[in-house]
Design a protein around this nucleic acid. Structure first.
Lengths: 150, 150
DNA sequence: TAAAAACCTTGTAGCCACTACATGGTCAAG
DNA sequence: CTTGACCATGTAGTGGCTACAAGGTTTTTA
């Protein structure tokens, strides 16, 4: 398989495949005499695994660790469990911030009714007011830095 | 106000403040004789506005547009409405993918029971199987590229 | 047969929103 | 008078790609 064919089979841009090779995620394949990369089934499966993990929104570093564990079948699998749990906690946290975010944005929307100048715009007024009224979290003792929405 | 004081008052790292100035989001303040930046109340309010928008997860380009509209009170405020709506749609889309994601991860978790080798790990098996069984979306006609979780 | 197109190669730079570091100047307290 | 906290600038790194540029190869078309 050439890189383009592998890309088609997995829906991955060839540039991304080369990128995965560059950062050591996908092993470098053998080359044809003309220098083209020649992939086999093992590469296809590995790439599919990577993309599935990415579809689960895992960072490439985590994928790297899972691949390593796959390559060493005798290792302890406790790490897999931990990794998935950590990732799930991360996703759930992000979910919560996003929900709060959507609520705030919904409140904001509809404050601006039709055509008028920005000077009278309810949304802008609300944003400015909220920014001013906002106490800095790091000042009332809790967190050292503002809890950023990620 | 020096940059550190402004940073404390708004919970923003001084390096981030300099960054905002560099990309033209925060106007360059006057300088003291020693070269230190000297900020006033207007800067503080503008920075608070920026951070509030960022807390709503808006990209800086959107914040830039809102600031421009704030600076031009006679402009049409329809843009504000559109911007917020677009952003809300974006957030809601992301929320949906994240929810699907969390469900998948929850299914995955618990497939690995206790201590054994990775060769017998249910999670890893599941991941590999899912990756193999996964038809490529771009092959059954719908989207040109796989719908990425963002 | 020639030209055009589609593929491949490498390397580099850009995206976003910061963050970290290196190197050096300035200022207040002990 | 030294120590430490602050400030200045500029550069490089983060993640996960994406987009070139400049060239070589292969396939298709006229």
């Amino acid at each position: 398989m050439r890189i383009g064919e592998l890309g088609q089979a997995t829906c991955v841009d060839p540039e991304t495949i080369r990128y995965y090779e560059r950062i050591g995620l996908l092993p470098a394949p053998v080359r044809r005499t003309n220098g083209y990369r020649a992939y086999g089934l093992a590469h296809l499966e590995r790439l599919a695994f990577i993309r599935h993990c990415r579809a689960l929104d895992m960072p490439l570093a985590d994928v790297q660790r899972l691949l390593h564990l796959l390559d060493h079948p005798l290792d302890d699998c406790l790490d897999v469990d931990r990794l998935i749990n950590t990732h799930l906690a991360h996703v759930q946290g992000r979910l919560q911030s996003l929900q709060a975010l959507a609520r705030q944005l919904e409140q904001l929307r509809g404050r601006c009714h039709g055509r008028h100048t920005t000077a009278e715009c309810g949304i802008l007024h609300e944003l400015v007011a909220a920014a001013q009224g906002e106490g800095c979290v790091c000042h009332d003792g809790s967190a050292p830095n503002s809890p950023e929405v990620i």
